[in-house]
Design a protein around this nucleic acid. Structure first.
Length: 152
DNA sequence: GCCAACGTTGGC
DNA sequence: GCCAACGTTGGC
């Protein structure tokens, strides 16, 4: 199943990702999002990368799931802002798939464009008040968004 | 287990 | 910087 993940470019941008090639998508501290990362992310799944809290907000590139089932190591790191005292090595609370950079779009598919596309009305990220940082995307929605990205 | 208070997200 | 949405916390 395709996915969409949000990131704040000030913290980790698509350019950082393009440079790294592979990254562990860590720091997610919401149980619903955790369940997606832990239970539903499959190797090979396509992942749209979305920039939030910036100008303009929108989908900026594509990635692919490279590895799953890995604990988010930041939960064990006392110096990390994502440290979780309740998590243990044997029973991790948080999980971080490894994502492989695929491509950066020539131009972002902006939130405004997403909203203006009738076939994307059901896109999870557009639903009122949805703040989840990891959301599922249907195959049809993925194709539409890739189309918007390619049409630039 | 309820729910008010509080904190965070994220668009604007 | 504002504020709506909504997740989390903690007293009871």
């Amino acid at each position: 199943m395709p996915w969409l993940v949000k990131t704040e470019p000030d913290v980790y941008s698509i350019d950082d990702f393009a440079r790294d090639k592979c990254t562990f998508w860590d720091g997610v501290r919401n149980y619903q999002a955790r369940n997606f990362l832990r239970d539903d992310f499959k190797v090979g799944d396509e992942v749209l990368v979305y920039h939030s809290n910036c100008e303009p907000t929108g989908v900026v590139g594509l990635a692919q799931v490279a590895k799953v089932g890995l604990p988010d190591l930041s939960q064990f790191d006392k110096s990390s802002e994502y440290y979780d005292a309740k998590a243990t090595q044997t029973q991790p609370t948080w999980f971080a798939p490894q994502l492989r950079f695929v491509r950066r779009f020539a131009a972002p598919v902006t939130l405004e464009q997403l909203r203006a596309t009738p076939k994307l009305v059901k896109l999870a990220i557009l639903r009122r008040g949805n703040r989840l940082s990891v959301t599922p995307v249907s195959s049809a929605e993925l194709q539409i968004i890739l189309g918007l990205a390619g049409a630039k």
